[in-house]
Amino acid sequence: MTATTERSAPRRGAVTALYAGNARAVVGRGLVATRSSNWVVVISGFVEPIFYLLSLGIGLGAYIGTVTDAGGHEIPYAAYIAPALLAVSAMNGAIYDSTWNVFFKMNFGKLYQGMLATSLGPLDVALGEILLALFRGAVYGVGFQIVMQLLGLNLSWTALLAVPAVVLIAFGFAAIGMGITSYFRTFQQMEWIFIVMLPMFLLSATFFPITVYPEPVQWAVMALPLWHGVELVRGLTTGVIEPVMLVHVLYYLAMVVAGLFFTTRRLRALFLD
C-alpha cells in the first residue's frame, strides 16, 4: 500500500462487503500458528512484568514501605504497583499486537493478502487479530495473577475480576491501536506510538499516586486511558470497590466503540486498495 492509494478515493461499499462473520477462522489460524511458534518466546512474555514487580516491589519497596490506597488503607508498595503492572502489560501487549504486528504483516508479510482472497472480509481479519490479542492478554493476565497470589499481593477475592478487567483494557487498546495503524504508512510514524505510551506508562498512577502532582496535572493524567485501567485493576486486587469504577469501565467501552468505528471506516485503506 502506498500513499497514492489515498488519492484514488475508492468508492464506498456497505459493511457487508467488509465482513463475512467468520473472524473465528482468523483466530483459529492464529492458534495453530502459535502451536508451532517458539515456546521460549511465549514464556518469556510472562517473566517481563514479573521482573518489574520483583525489582521495584522489593528494591524500591524497601524505601517506600507502604502507600495509602484509595480506601485510606496502608498497603505494601508491591501490592500497590502489581495491579498497575498488570494493566500496563495488558496495554503493551494489545498495542504491540494491533500496531507493529498488524503493520508488519500488512506491509511486509503476505498473510493478509492470502486471507483476503477468500470469502473473509477485512473486518473479519481485524476482529480476528483483536480477539487473538485479547486471548494472549488473558493468558498473560492469568499468569501474572497467579504470581501475585503466590506473593500475597491479592488483597481481596475481587482480584478474580481483574482478569476480565485486563481483557477489557486490552480490548480498548487493541481497538484504538488498530484504528491508529490504519492511518500510518511508515515505520517512522509507528515510533511515535511509543513516544506517547511512555508518559502514560510513567505518570498514570503506576508507580506513585497522582496526588503528588498539582491539580491540573492530575486532571490531565485522569484523561489518559491507562490511568483508568490502572485504577480499575488496583481497585479490584486491593478490594476497594467504588462506584467510580463504572466510569473506568465506560471509558474502555468507549475506546472499544471508537476504535472499532475508526477501524471499520478505514478498513479499505488498511487492507484493500
Binding site: L60, F207, F208
Partner: peptide, 17 residues
C-alpha cells in the same frame, strides 16, 4: 518525563520513607 516521574513523583514517596 523521568524527572517528572522519578524525581518528583517517586521522590515524594521515597523521601517520605
Amino acid at each position: 518525563l523521568y524527572l517528572l516521574a522519578f524525581g518528583i513523583g517517586l521522590g515524594v514517596l521515597v523521601g517520605a520513607g
